[in-house]
């Protein structure tokens, strides 16, 4: 184990590199979460659409993503797609992560959409709203609110999963930590440092999700 003073010395001296890496991790996470929400919502709606073929497409997607390791998906996207057209590393990593998170997010959203009382939709329809309008104005706002705790959980998983982008040579946090560690023959110090950065990011994400939850629960009070 490194001594405290050595740990803090290294923490501060390496902060430039790590902060740059942290920003990349943050970018990967934010892009993959945002794209993942869009993908997730799309597949959740396909699943509840009452059209068999669409529900089947959604089921298949979820099965494939949940049934294979994320690292395999990242490699398939990185090596496979790069053969067809050049996909920048950042986008290969973000899209793989988004594609992966999307499956879990779609299951979260499907569950919460279906948990909203059927009467809510009927009330909307009885006021002359179309299915789409009632979904957008009545059902989804309630479903998103209910989905926030599990979504927050998924976001944190997504953040930590972004470390796998190191394997396609993205200079995000984990990659920087292992590289610096082996260059300086000091793996443990750099791994402890990177753990601190992940904790900071997760804390930050948790605060954002909690703030949203509080803001949205205003109608309960």
């Amino acid at each position: 184990m490194p001594s405290f003073s050595h740990f803090f010395d290294t923490l501060f001296s390496s902060s430039d590199v790590f902060i740059r890496a942290m920003l990349l991790t943050l970018e990967l996470t934010v892009v993959s979460i945002l794209v993942g929400i869009i993908i997730g919502l799309l597949f959740a709606l396909l699943k509840i659409s009452n059209i068999k073929i669409l529900a089947w497409i959604s089921d298949t997607y979820v099965f494939l993503v949940r049934g294979t390791p994320l690292i395999v998906q990242i490699f398939i996207l990185y090596f496979g797609i790069s053969n067809l057209f050049l996909l920048p590393d950042f986008w290969a990593a973000s899209l793989a992560l988004a594609f992966h998170n999307g499956a879990y997010i779609s299951e979260i959203l499907r569950g919460t959409i279906q948990s909203i009382d059927k009467g809510q939709m009927e009330a909307g329809r009885s006021l002359g709203m179309s299915n789409a309008l009632a979904l957008r104005r009545i059902i989804l706002p309630q479903a998103f609110r209910r989905a926030l705790p599990p979504l927050g959980n998924q976001f944190i998983i997504g953040l930590k999963d972004s470390s796998l982008a190191a394997f396609i040579s993205m200079n995000e946090l984990f990659n920087v930590a292992t590289t610096l560690g082996s260059n300086n023959f000091d793996e443990m110090t750099y791994l402890l440092i990177v753990a601190v950065y992940y904790l900071i990011l997760v804390a930050f994400l948790t605060i954002i999700v909690n703030t949203f939850e509080k803001k949205l629960s205003i109608s309960d009070r």
Binding site: Q120, E122, A123, G124, R125, S126, L127, P141, R145, S219
Partner: peptide, 18 residues
Amino acid sequence: REKVGMVFQHFYLFPHMT
């Protein structure tokens, strides 16, 4: 439905709106 309104047994107010 714009011409025929409906009031339900369980109200079904939209809970996320005032």
